[in-house]
């Protein structure tokens, strides 16, 4: 574990020295505030506002988060630093999980600031039922969505040494578990059973439950399983690239 954290720490440090982290944080903050103020009206119930804001954020994260994850492993292979890293006594799993944790650390900070800002606005303008619990559940949902997106992005980054390719791959994969499933879930030509399965796979549905204030074991299990699955795939991808 200490080794994994050392790798995470280095990754986080590297993010704080790259312009992309600041550009992304700024974009994320702007969009969060934009979605919030689009729906927010002082004095009105805030429950729908949270659902709207968190729902829209999941959609933009499909495009924003791959920009953070794209360089994680692709860059190591491109610059050759992977060689010095992998010949040190560390395992592939420690490298992959460490990088994921580092990226999650950045994501958590860039999530925390704008969310704190809009929460402050909401709670200071709403007297009756500010929906604090719902807000916290929604924020936890966003963190979990980020965990899954980052794991998928990391997997994409492990398959190529070109960051642009890694970004595109990640966006395509993320679109499948958000936009495509959303479309299929609404499709009338599919049987109800299939739509139910699609609905379970759909990240927007799962996150939507959190945004409504529902933290269910099944929902948590979904995010943990999917993130774990893609981290495992990323480890295998790193391993296989050394065999080629």
């Amino acid at each position: 574990m200490p080794l994994t954290l050392d790798i995470a720490r280095r990754e986080l440090m590297s993010f704080y020295r790259s312009p992309i982290a600041y550009v992304m944080a700024a974009a994320f903050a702007l969009l969060t505030c934009y979605f919030f103020f689009l729906a927010f009206e002082p004095g009105q119930p805030v429950s729908g506002v949270w659902q709207h804001t968190f729902g829209r954020l999941v959609q933009v994260m499909v495009f924003l988060l791959p920009a953070l994850s794209m360089r994680l492993i692709a860059e190591e292979f491109r610059s050759g630093t992977i060689e010095t890293l992998m010949t040190a006594p560390v395992t592939d799993t420690q490298v992959v999980v460490g990088k994921w944790l580092g990226a999650m650390g950045l994501y958590a900070t860039m999530l925390a600031l704008p969310l704190a800002a809009i929460a402050l606005v909401a709670f200071s303008h709403v007297t009756r039922d500010p929906g604090g619990g719902q807000f916290l559940a929604g924020a936890a949902g966003l963190l979990m969505v980020g965990g899954v997106f980052m794991a998928i992005g990391l997997f994409a980054s492990a398959m190529t040494q070109n960051q642009i390719v890694a970004w595109i791959l990640a966006v395509v994969m993320l679109s499948v578990v958000t936009f495509v499933t959303e479309y299929l879930y609404a499709a009338r030509w599919l049987s109800n059973e299939i739509r139910e399965v699609v609905g379970y796979v759909d990240v927007t549905q799962q996150a939507g439950a959190f945004a409504r204030g529902l933290i269910q074991p099944a929902g948590v299990a979904y995010f943990v399983t999917v993130a774990g699955l893609f981290l495992f795939c990323a480890v295998k991808a790193v391993e296989s690239r050394r065999w080629r």
């Binding site: 200490p2 080794l3 050392d6 280095r10 440090m13 590297s14 020295r17 790259s18 610059s79 050759g80 630093t81 992977i82 060689e83 010095t84 890293l85 010949t87 040190a88 006594p89 560390v90």
Partner: peptide, 26 residues
């Protein structure tokens, strides 16, 4: 091991990099 093109993390300071390497070896 020092690989052929001496790959390093460009954004790190020299002492930070060496410290990181030391940590990797526990």
């Amino acid at each position: 091991y020092m690989p052929e093109t001496t790959p390093l993390y460009p954004e790190m300071r020299v002492c930070e990099y060496l410290d990181f390497r030391g940590r990797l070896y526990r």
